[in-house]
Design a protein around this nucleic acid. Sequence first.
DNA 1: TAGATCACTTGTAATCTGCAAGTGAAATGT
DNA 2: ACATTTCACTTGCAGATTACAAGTGATCTA
Lengths: 118, 118
Amino acid sequence: MLGDRWSLLIIRDLMLRGFRTYKEFLGCYEGIATNILADRLQKLTAHGIIGAQPDPEDGRKWIYSLTAKGIDLAPVLTEMVLWAAAHEDTGNQALVQEMKKDKQKFLAAIRQRWAEGK
Amino acid sequence: MLGDRWSLLIIRDLMLRGFRTYKEFLGCYEGIATNILADRLQKLTAHGIIGAQPDPEDGRKWIYSLTAKGIDLAPVLTEMVLWAAAHEDTGNQALVQEMKKDKQKFLAAIRQRWAEGK
DNA sequence: TAGATCACTTGTAATCTGCAAGTGAAATGT
DNA sequence: ACATTTCACTTGCAGATTACAAGTGATCTA
């Protein structure tokens, strides 16, 4: 269900990088094809991990967001980021430091952010 | 690097189900092809996540094991199992209960088991 | 109202995967 | 000693999946 090259990246960027629209995803990943992105967004939606709403300010856009099920992946993503930081070259040292310092606080902040609807 | 259908399952079963040989993996997953299994074991080895040693009791067999880098995936796998248990139908309720009850203790036990060389 | 932007869809070629059948080395049975 | 079986793979090939380029229609902007 998450066992493909892009799904977890999409969730990560919704959760940690504030991505919201198709264009943001498409522009960011080197190499993701338009049809594959559309397919993954659709499958994640079908699995109830993300949701989509029309943008009230621009009728062409859709705004993607995490569902409760998607937000519950925060501990998984956090551990993955920490693992990658420990064993591979990764950027984003600030984020990693914040996670390491107080994991529970970090997770609580993510949940809080989504509870507030942003 | 782990973004495919089988790699994380292989790591999970090395870590939690005590799998050690090619045959165990092959017999367990419905549908994994022999060449794909060989390929994944090789790639995981190349990435330093698993290692392989010849079986001293049977010259045909290889014994696969987790490296330190692989063992460090325990928190990721644990959170994934807990997420799946909360949101999908999964078996292995005993394992899930043990993880939930004391996550740190559970992780310490995994590390201990590997430190002892089993 | 012409052109740009947006989120896709479609077509096609290349790549990857799944399955069946094989291979060689090592173990087992007689 | 020799045939058979087991083991961990490899090989060949058809079918599925993916990447890339080029649209498409609805919506926004100048």
